[in-house]
Design a protein around this nucleic acid. Sequence first.
RNA 1: CGGGCUGUAGCGCAGUUUGGUUAGCGCGCUUGCUUCGGGAGCAAGAGGUCGGCGGUUCAAGUCCGCCCAGCCCGACCA
Length: 653
Amino acid sequence: MPPGGGLRGPAGRILRGPGAEGAAPEAGGGGGQRRAGPGQQGEGGQVRLSVLLGRTLRESPVEAELPSHRLLLRAGMIRRVASGVYTYLPLGWRVLNRIHHILRQEMDAIGGQEISMPVVQPAELWQQTGRFDEIGPELVRFKDRSGREMVLGMTHEEVVTELARSEIESYRQLPLMLYQIQTKVRDDPRPRGGLVRVREFWMKDAYSFHRTAADLEAYYPLVYQAYLNVFRRVGISVVPVESDTGMMGGKVSHEFMMVSEFGEDRLAICPCCGYAANLEVAVRGAERPAEGLGPAEGQPAGAPSEGMQPAGLPAPPPASTAAGPGPAQGEVPQPQPVHTPGAQTIEAVTGLLGFSPRQALKTLVYLADGGLVLVGVRGDSEANETKLRKVLGCRELRLATDEEAGAAGLCPGYVSPVGLRGFRVVVDRGVAQARDLLAGANRPDYHLLHVQPGRDFEGEVADVTLVAPGDPCPRCGAGLELKRGIEAGHTFQLGTKYSEALGARFLDADDRSRPLVMGCYGIGSGRLMACIVEQNHDENGIVWPASVAPYHFHLVGLGPDPAVMSRAEEVYRELSGAGLEVVYDDRDAAPGVKFNDADLLGAPWRLTLSRRTLEAGTVEVKERRSGRVEDLPQAGLAGRLAALLEAELARYR
RNA sequence: CGGGCUGUAGCGCAGUUUGGUUAGCGCGCUUGCUUCGGGAGCAAGAGGUCGGCGGUUCAAGUCCGCCCAGCCCGACCA
């Protein structure tokens, strides 16, 4: 833009350059370059709604289901470009930058140094760590013009470790914390939920390097706390949970989950002691001995109801079983076949015989990397495939079809490990500890009574059960609750997986070369923006926490009265000149339209100028979150608002 | 990748079952006038390869085939 010149706006309006109004140019807030806003929170700046790109929508597009998705679209903060690919419009981009600003502050506070690594990376690095082959089509691969294999970074362990390999030589350089904020690409099979799950996304990722595992463990809580700080400062509450390490590898890992009915992850949470874990890794506490697999309460196994007992059924379990199991209860009788025609499910067979599902052995037939595996869990439980995958050490895992099981000589619906040879068998801990079970007989229409794990079959014992609501907490024994959550952040103690694979070693004080011990830590900032909206909205729109609001004040001039509008104009310049961030609705629109848009856009305060306030020499100030309204004198307004803002921002520091 | 659903104007939808003039409605958009404290009124307008390709037919938004895209559930996945 030529100095002092003008740029013709969309409505034929002349957009004046810097200096014409306040310190920053219009409509851009300084292009995101200014860092000296109030409270050092962002870029400062101001904008007229009449020129702002990003029309508000009265109706939301059908594809939007989540409140955050709907509101971000309706407010003109984001627009979809392709499935799981979004453009951030000016308001959304400002919010994202606010989030990034907070992330930078918190990362800097724990010694982080910001860098920027490329999205385009040589496949060679990924081949060296093995992830090029391990990871499926989610990793975008392509060849450059000379035929060299490349990938698009879905995360940056390889690149950062390569950097560490070349830059870190001595233990004197440790510990080191590096972080970056940029986009990642994952060709997700199923993007959804607007910004919650996308294929190209903004992320703050950080990597720490240490001399020893103990050093990493000592540093880890700092990051953990920094993460809690971030979530508090952007205005959402999260629960840290123990989690699976997935494709990252490593040992210790925590996810920071925002509880939400729209969450994709399931969590086990103890309401008493605070135990919280992703269902993928959640464990249930030990059963009290009295809770062995005895008869169901109020339904003695020895006395199935008359109507349910098929003709010709062998004698029901003897009284010794019904009396209640336990080590001191004597011998479990030898297995005894029982005719159970058509009863191919736990529900059917236990119903038929009058047992509780808890008394049955559920044997699942899995296909693990092509080989059949029998997995025994309690009849009232589900298998946890994440745990199972780990126990088996396999990559691909799925239930075998009836055809596949049948082809291997198994009898679908009546399978159990009893009397079978040549199959790998995994038995859940809960089953191994049980006694006197009902199990499949491995022939059609028959089950076995009095099956005793350890005596009648054997297998690798491991925890492979999916925790269910009400299961005992592993720490305190109280009943666990199940909730859904959106993963807002994830921290890992990686160890030496990447440094060893890439030869990132340092010379220790004892003159020996050792691999760097690493941690990695991510927060999806775009997803975080969605999370903030999920937890901060009402039926009228977004309610931005002041710490991340695109603008702090939403000024409405109720036209068309020229006196009111020129007063509004005056206030706009005054506040802008004072360095306050204000979006000014200068459009020629009905009051209802302006108010509704103000609610939708979600600035913490709405300022209204009208005939009434004109006569009184005041400005109406409405707090978005509470709806509280107050008239402030126009004289000294900027100072009062600055104080209001400062007090509010203090809550997020 | 499996199951279900949907593609008609920027957004939300009707029309497709039973083929038949020039494809409609609401919101939004443009122009003018009026209105002005919670999504205003009147008038005049602009805007469409009916997702794409092929087929059937005198005639296809409508029937048939193939393909593409999007959403939901599952699988997978930070």
